[in-house]
Nucleic acid binder design. Structure first.
Lengths: 146, 146
DNA sequence: TATTTGCACTTGCAATTTGCAAGCAAATTT
DNA sequence: AAATTTGCTTGCAAATTGCAAGTGCAAATA
């Protein structure tokens, strides 16, 4: 149960109340970069989130307008999760975390390459990825319209 | 006790292992923007961090090279905390969180004004604040040299 | 000199949150 | 019709958090 009590008027604090934990941004990462969009997809990520924690985080993120649920076109048993615009707008934050990581950690070569791309022109990178995510969002929205 | 086991090779996950909680970035915010630099300063922030959690977070941030301790020039009983370069480099992340907040939250007018400044020229903002923090860091380092 | 105050924690303990295993209903596949 | 998949929920032990009350040391005050 996510309570709604604000710790302070500080927007940083308010933001951390939404995604300031060890799991939320990883779910958002999976939606952004790895085309994961079902419960099972998130469960299968390398970090190994527990199923009850995943359910709790998905609920919180939805309540806060970061993600949205919709029917999966392939099956009624499946639920399709996608980023809402408010979630897509988290991209610059996640990008900067990756860039910071790049300075202080070692990491897989493919990720390093993507970060290099992003660093070359941050705004362009954000624009491109945002566009892709927005298109995907629209497709799924219309395809499973209710 | 902060353990060192990595959940995965993902740099985002590794980063969240360091500052992915409700408190760490608030301490860093206090060091960056509000000239807070003692234990008591952090305790007095609006969010009301508990004293054992503060001690635990300071320890973790120090172990991870985000902050550094030094002797306070005014009193031997006091400890002065400051951002290490690795901590100063978190500025772009925190700035982007503020910018995201600005789009989706209401907030105090003075903070809104600072964000407006930052948005006008992000790189300039980062350069300026980084410079100030680096100068402050050097001053305190030499003043209390050991 | 003795006492009080301030500072940076530590300790104890109850309450909350997390992690793991198992279970479950509805939908789908075989 | 039976087995499997999917998205959860439930139970419970373990870890983390939040709060109050110390603790040890140094500086200030009496």
């Amino acid at each position: 149960m996510e309570t709604n009590k604000k710790r302070s008027d500080c927007p940083l604090s308010n933001s951390l109340d939404i995604f300031g934990d060890k799991w939320s941004l990883l779910i958002i990462r999976d939606l952004m970069f790895f085309k994961k969009c079902t419960y099972k997809d998130f469960l299968s990520s390398a970090e190994g989130i527990a199923t009850n924690i995943l359910a709790s985080r998905l609920k919180g993120l939805e309540e806060n307008g970061i993600i949205e649920k919709s029917a999966h076109p392939d099956s009624k048993a499946k639920i399709l999760y996608r980023l809402a615009p408010k979630g897509i707008d988290l991209l610059p934050i996640i990008m900067e975390i990756y860039i910071w990581s790049d300075k202080y950690f070692t990491m897989p070569a493919d990720i390093k390459e993507t970060i290099k791309e992003a660093k070359k022109d941050k705004e362009k990178f954000v624009r491109q990825v945002t566009k892709e995510l927005t298109i995907k969002m629209m497709e799924k929205k219309t395809a499973t319209d209710n």
